[in-house]
Each structure stands twice: as C-alpha cells, then as structure tokens.
C-alpha cells in the first residue's frame, strides 16, 4: 500500500476515533489518536493490517525511535529493587538467567505496560547475559509488550470454548465501545484491546483478562472477568474506566458451580463410607488403656 494511502487510512481511523468522543471526557486531538503502530512506517502499517491473525504484537526487530532507542538508559525504581532482589534470590547465582521472565514482568509493570530496549538491556546487565538473550525471550512471549500500551490492557479470550460461548460478540462490543480495532489503543490511552489464547477459564467462558498498569508495580493487578455477555463486558470496562473495582471472577455466580443450582450430589451420600479413623483410634486407645489397667491390677 502506498505510504500516502496508509497515512490517509490511519488518519481516517483517527477521525473515526475522535467521532466517538463520548468514550472519554478528555479532549481528543487527532495527534493523540496515533495507534500503537507508527503510520509512517510502511512495514508497521502492513503489520497492523494483518494483525488480526497475529497473536504476539509488533515487529520482531527493533528500530530506534525518539522514545525508545539504544542511547537510552533505564533502571528499576528504588521501591522496586527489593522485589528484584527477592526474585534473584530464588535462583542459584550460576542460573541467574532463570530470573529473566519475572524481571521482565516486573519491569513491564513499572513502565506502564511495555518494555523498551533500555529496559531489556538493563535486565541483561542484571542477569549477566548478552542482551540478545533477553530480546529473544521478550519477543517470544506475547504477554511482553514492546510498544506503548493503554493503561488497561483488555485481553479477550479467543480460544474455542470462549468462542463458542460468544467471545466474538464480546470482542465486537468492546471494539465498538472503545472505538478501536483489536490490538489497538484508544485515543485517550486508557484501553488497549487485545486477544489472548486460553487462560484456563473455560468453565466460566466467555471471559476477559485485564492487566491494570495505572498504579505501578504496587497497585498492579491482572484480573479475570468471567461469564460475560457483550453488555456485562462493556459494563466491566466502564467500571474500570471510572476507577471502580468491578467484581472479579464470574459475574453471575460464586465460582464455577452450575448456574441452575446443583444437579447432582444434592442429597446426603449413601455410602459405602470410608473407615472412621477417629473411631478406630479411640477403640485402639481404649483397648490399650484397658490392657494397661488389667496389667496394673494383676501386679497388685
């Protein structure tokens, strides 16, 4: 796609986003509407277009940009350092690199949801490995983001059970409500809509997970919201945006019990039961006491 057209399309999308000002009270300048990808980068645009099929986000090579380049430095905040040390203590000193994933995760929490080159370099320093070893890990795992994220990262489960229970509709509803396409960030920077593979919640399908980067490492949360409908999914996000804490877990039941009440195991169990170990123990003790008493009486 010629660059001009790409730009036009990106701008159109921006205007589109601006039209849905209702989303966020904040003023929305067109420049703010820049999505995660840089429209002036032909390849990035191409990636954005095919992104619907890609699970991990972004490119697999780094390009120096003003906000993320090889001249920058970064370190863990002083308040986070005890956590870093605690993580490092878990592993023997000759297997320091085992701490790579926890440290990357911690760094990502500190940096409002994404990793920069400087952060990866710093972690390589801490772990005494070559930087490329960190880049490899950071690009491999889709939960590490290497581009600026919204403060709330909403991940819709797209795997079969959730899909059969309506995750596509949830996704559509969220896209509409946020005014972005999947893998994009809202103009105001509050939400990034993403997709995730099975998060092990199939019994309460469909579900979304939300990573909350608003409050740094201390206030970081990664919560599941389950048993959703398109309406409740939007409600959850609305509540999050308003700074409230919507109910975590299932939205309609306690845990994962059947919705219409128990259908089985409703009465008392009919047996056979296992042995009553307490009774056996009491019997044995009594027998032993009786024997001891008998022995004592005989002695007398």
């Amino acid at each position: 796609m010629p660059r001009a057209r790409a730009l036009a399309r990106a701008l159109a999308r921006a205007v589109d986003a601006t039209a849905r000002v209702a989303l966020d009270g904040a003023s929305m300048r067109a420049t703010c509407a820049r999505t995660m990808t840089k429209p002036n980068d032909a390849r990035a645009v191409a990636t954005a277009r095919t992104r619907a099929r890609a699970y991990s986000v972004g490119q697999m090579v780094h390009r120096d940009v003003p906000e993320d380049n090889s001249t920058m430095t970064w370190t863990f905040e002083a308040s986070v350092r005890p956590k870093v040390d605690a993580i490092l203590r878990r592993y023997p000193s000759n297997y320091k690199r085992s701490a790579m994933i926890p440290l990357l995760d911690l760094a990502q929490q500190q940096n409002k949801g994404h990793l920069t080159l400087a952060m990866m370099n710093h972690i390589a320093d801490v772990l005494e490995v070559a930087p490329i070893r960190v880049y490899e890990v950071a690009t491999f795992y889709s939960m590490f983001n290497r581009q600026k994220m919204g403060k709330l990262h909403v991940m819709v489960c797209g795997t079969t059970p959730c899909m059969l229970r309506g995750s596509r509709e949830i996704e559509k509803a969220l896209e509409e409500w946020m005014g972005v396409k999947k893998f994009e960030t809202t103009a105001c920077g509050t939400f990034t809509l993403g997709e995730m593979e099975c998060m092990g919640c199939c019994v309460n399908a469909p579900m979304i997970a939300v990573a909350d980067y608003r409050n740094g490492v201390e206030g970081y949360s990664y919560n599941y919201y389950e048993d959703l409908t398109p309406q409740t999914a939007v409600k959850v996000c609305e509540a999050l945006k308003a700074g409230k804490s919507p109910r975590v877990g299932s939205q309609i039941r306690d845990k994962a019990e059947p919705i219409k009440g128990l259908t089985t195991l409703t009465g008392d169990p009919s047996g056979p039961f296992s042995r009553d170990l307490d009774q056996i123990k009491a019997d044995v003790d009594a027998a032993a006491a009786a024997a001891a008493a008998a022995a004592a009486a005989e002695k007398k």
């Binding site: 890609a54 991990s56 697999m60 090579v61 780094h62 390009r63 120096d64 090889s70 080159l117 490995v129 070559a130 930087p131 490329i132 070893r133 880049y135 490899e136 690009t139 491999f140 795992y141 889709s142």
Partner: peptide
C-alpha cells in the same frame, strides 16, 4: 560474540540481532 538470536515465535520467528 553473542549478537545473533531468534526473535519472535512461530510464524514470526526471525534469525537476527534484534537491534541493528
């Protein structure tokens, strides 16, 4: 010289140096 590696995964895996 530990400069080369595999970045990305699956269909997006690339051999390279990640940074130029």
């Amino acid at each position: 010289v530990q400069d080369m590696g595999i970045t990305g995964r699956g269909n997006q895996a690339e051999v390279g140096t990640y940074i130029s």
